[in-house]
């Protein structure tokens, strides 16, 4: 039992500090991808509900591609494909060596996947908002931006929150894939620790436990967010 504590302790002997660094990396990657994914997803939802057929078709192609590809493959396409593409472009201007940042590649890939799912969540929330809300806003003389900001968005947040919080939990789990392209997240450090100490079960169990804790913390945050979003509803 003491051995386990030594292995997990902070400092030279244990892997606690490394794993903590991995947690920071995982959380910051997820937090960095979230706003981009949300923004892209919202714009995609607007495109999908527009009356312009070409815009709808283009947005649907985006969703089909990034929902159909495995997340790992998307990550590789962004990481290796981006590297090759940038190197080709740079080669036109002379000899350069360029390495794509793994964090950036992970962030882009995760945002692409997140946004395509989030757009569906936003779209179904848009559909759940009664047409009368738009008409009412129109009758009050509100413009498009004001209608969106004051009338539609508050309801949209409330309606899409359950689906989006589910997507956040999925995003948190998907960050584990970036360990494969060498980013030092929880799984990466657990892997290193497992190889060095020959205690694979311990370290992967710790990794799983950390993900569970992150999920529990997120659930707590989400339920507070949910209560905030529903503050306008009458208590039943």
């Amino acid at each position: 039992m003491n051995e386990i504590f030594t292995l997990l302790s902070f400092g030279d002997m244990g892997w606690g500090d490394e794993i903590a660094l991995g947690v920071v990396m995982t959380v910051s990657l997820a937090l960095a991808s979230l706003p981009i994914g949300l923004l892209l997803g919202f714009l995609l939802a607007l495109a999908k509900k527009s009356e312009e057929p070409s815009l709808r078709a283009a947005a649907n192609i985006y969703t089909t591609i990034f929902r159909g590809l495995p997340e790992l493959l998307t990550l590789f396409l962004v990481y290796y494909g981006g590297q090759i593409l940038i190197q080709q472009v740079l080669a036109l201007f002379g000899e350069f060596y360029f390495e794509v940042n793994a964090f950036l590649a992970g962030m882009i890939a995760l945002s692409l996947v997140f946004s395509s799912y989030a757009s569906e969540a936003f779209l179904s929330a848009f559909r759940a908002i009664n047409k009368g809300q738009y008409e009412g806003a129109n009758a009050l003389g509100l413009g498009y931006v004001q209608t969106m900001r004051l009338v539609i968005l508050p309801q949209l947040v409330r309606l899409s929150l359950p689906a989006l919080s589910n997507l956040w939990l999925i995003l948190l789990k998907e960050t584990s894939l970036v360990s494969i392209i060498g980013l030092a997240d929880i799984i990466r450090y657990s892997n290193m620790a497992a190889r060095t100490t020959k205690e694979p079960f311990l370290f992967f169990a710790v990794a799983c436990a950390i993900y569970l804790v992150l999920a529990i913390i997120s659930s707590g945050g989400i339920s507070r967010l949910d209560a905030w979003a529903k503050r306008g509803e009458t208590p039943r």
Partner: peptide
């Protein structure tokens, strides 16, 4: 809760490498 709350990658590693323990 465990299998829905942890990444599939971690589960695969836990079973494949963890069995070595």
């Amino acid at each position: 809760y465990f299998f829905r709350g942890t990444p599939l990658l971690a589960q695969v590693f836990l079973i494949y490498y963890g069995a070595g323990t």
